[in-house]
Each structure stands twice: as structure tokens, then as C-alpha cells.
């Protein structure tokens, strides 16, 4: 389906001036940050939200975090990004908070039963009753 579109990445960057970037585009401290960015691009490509809407929600998330004492030194940017993504998918009724939690817990169980060095894969049995 969607190929990686440099134009889409540039739009994301323009809409999110706080996004860590160098002259060529976004940069990431950790792999999960790139994964969170990739999911956001994919949902935007699906038309789930416009960048203006995303930026507004991200701004709210950051403001709320700062009000709660987050120093926002820059390395927290993608934590806010991820929290925004979770809120966006719930608000757009793609999923619910409890579904997110159930999947999170299932991944934790999958990791716990997977010996170090082997790929961690989710099984239906990881979803506890």
C-alpha cells in the first residue's frame, strides 16, 4: 500500500515544528520513536486526521504535561507524541483505552515467556481472561 512519501514526512515536520530533525528530516533517539512516527504517518495517510488537528492535540498533551511538572527538555517529545497517538486512536474510535491496555499486557506476557534472543511474537494465549 502506501509507499514512503517524503512529501508526507515534510508535511508532518512543517505541522510539528518541535519534531526533532536535521536538515534532511526527522531524527529519532530510539527505535520506538520512529515506530510511533511511522504509525502517525500511516494514520494520516489514511485520512484519519489532518496535521492541524494532530498538532493541536499534541500541543494540548504537551501543555498538560508541563502543567503537571514535565520539564520538556526535548527527550520527552516522543513520549508526548505517543500519548497523543493513543488519545487520537481512542477519540477516532479506532480502539478503546481498555483494548490498548489488553494488548499492552499481552505483549508483556509474550516478552516474559520468550527467551532472550528470540523474536517476541504475540499469541492469542497471551491475552489472559
Amino acid at each position: 500500500m502506501d509507499l514512503i512519501d517524503p512529501v508526507a514526512a515534510r508535511q508532518a515536520l512543517l505541522a510539528n515544528p518541535g519534531l526533532p530533525a536535521d536538515s534532511q528530516g526527522p531524527v529519532f533517539c530510539e527505535p520506538w520513536e520512529a515506530q510511533a512516527f511511522a504509525m502517525t504517518l500511516a494514520l494520516h495517510a489514511k485520512g484519519l486526521f489532518a496535521w492541524g488537528e494532530w498538532a493541536a492535540m499534541l500541543g494540548e498533551t504537551i501543555k498538560a504535561a508541563q502543567a503537571a511538572g514535565d520539564p520538556d527538555t526535548g527527550d520527552t517529545y516522543y513520549r508526548h507524541w505517543l500519548a497523543t497517538l493513543e488519545r487520537m486512536v481512542a477519540e477516532k474510535a479506532l480502539t478503546t483505552q481498555s483494548d490498548l491496555t489488553a494488548h499492552r499486557d499481552a505483549w508483556e506476557r509474550a516478552a516474559a515467556r520468550t527467551p532472550h534472543g528470540q523474536p517476541i511474537e504475540l499469541r492469542s494465549t497471551d491475552f489472559a481472561a
Binding site: W32, Q35, A36, M39, R79, L82, L85, E86, V89, L100, T101, H103, R104, A106, W107, E108, A111, A112, R113, T114, P115, H116, Q118, I120, L122
Partner: peptide, 15 residues
Amino acid sequence: EASDLSETELRVRAL
């Protein structure tokens, strides 16, 4: 040793 995923990684994988 079991595999270990951080809290953030768990949330990203869930999504």
C-alpha cells in the same frame, strides 16, 4: 533470561 520490553515499547507494540 526472558526478553524485556520497556513500558514505552509495550505501548508502541500494543498500538
